[in-house]
């Protein structure tokens, strides 16, 4: 294609300039992302290297050390860490299931129906998330001891609702509000019962939000420290508490702590990687995209 002779040098110069800035901005953007990635991932990397060091090398700050699996052996085989891991799965998983079972209908109710003090109730639910856990933990401890929920699965699952449910309710409430009520009505007129309407129409529409807030609820429950610290004893131990055991009053086995922490974050990382697509979308878009 022949361009106009006179304007060609100017145009190509312009083009080269534009290509230059594009390349620069590409480099700049990626440099920033790399910086952020290093910033975010370095602690994890450091933790993983700690798991492979012996106690003697623990305080060296170079990556030059003789790797050893003795920490893993000591923690995973030598202690009942796996028991705590499984119990943590039961407690966190149970908390998420209960949150979904109760939170989805609650979110639907807050989105669809008008009743007195609706906004107050919605805000109260959210405020559970603001309140520091330490604020309520002593009364809860006393009550749990009285009614026999201390050191039980159900006791922990129940109290975890304080940290898992508010976010799920608020995210899903927004999703339900985005779905016009006529869509449900149309499905009813098509001949579907209310539970069929829920499974066939509503559930697919709220799925991104449900997955994202469900995962966050799982992470909140999995990471919870204060509640299991106070409300569980010998029968139930979560990994956050178990990890502490490797810090004794006279000696600290940082290698053991690092192994405990590394194993503890594995399920979260796997889950987050699998559904990272949903995670961003689920928290940033509504149910019905225009």
């Amino acid at each position: 294609m022949m361009a106009n002779d006179q304007s060609q040098p100017l145009a190509s110069g312009n083009l080269r300039f534009r290509q230059g800035t594009a390349a620069l901005s590409w480099i700049g953007r990626n440099l920033a992302l790399v910086c952020f990635a290093v910033f975010a991932l370095f602690p994890i990397l450091w933790m993983v290297t700690c798991t492979l060091k012996s106690d003697a090398e623990m305080y060296t700050t170079v990556f030059n050390f003789t790797p050893t699996l003795s920490n893993y052996r000591a923690v995973l085989i030598g202690t009942d860490y796996f028991k705590a891991f499984l119990q943590n799965i039961v407690v966190a998983g149970g908390a998420v299931l209960l949150t979904i079972a109760v939170g989805v209908p609650a979110a639907y109710g807050l989105a669809r129906y008008n009743f007195k003090k609706k906004e107050d109730i919605a805000f109260t639910i959210l405020s559970f998330k603001f309140a520091p856990e330490i604020l309520v933990i002593l009364p809860v401890f006393l009550i749990f001891q009285k009614i026999g929920l201390y050191d039980t699965y159900f006791g922990l699952i129940w109290v975890y609702q304080l940290i898992t449910m508010p976010l799920l309710i608020w995210v899903l409430r927004g999703y339900f509000e985005d779905i016009s009520v006529e869509i449900e009505q149309a499905a009813q007129l098509d001949g579907y019962r209310w539970y069929e309407v829920f499974w066939k129409i509503l559930l697919p529409l709220i799925k991104p939000g449900l997955v994202a807030s469900g995962l966050l609820a799982f992470i909140f429950a999995w990471n919870s420290f204060t509640f299991p610290l106070i409300l569980s004893g010998f029968k139930i131990q979560t990994i956050t508490i178990t990890s502490l055991r490797y810090i004794a009053s006279d000696s600290v086995h940082y290698g053991h702590v690092a192994v405990a922490a590394t194993v503890a974050i594995t399920p979260e990382i796997i889950a987050a990687l699998f559904i990272q697509k949903h995670l961003v979308r689920g928290l940033s878009f509504g149910a019905v995209k225009g």
């Binding site: 016009s180 006529e182 869509i183 009505q185 149309a186 129409i201 529409l205 149910a287 019905v288």
Partner: peptide, 9 residues
Amino acid sequence: FENYALYPH
């Protein structure tokens, strides 16, 4: 329905 009420998914 006036607003169509089609199932978006």
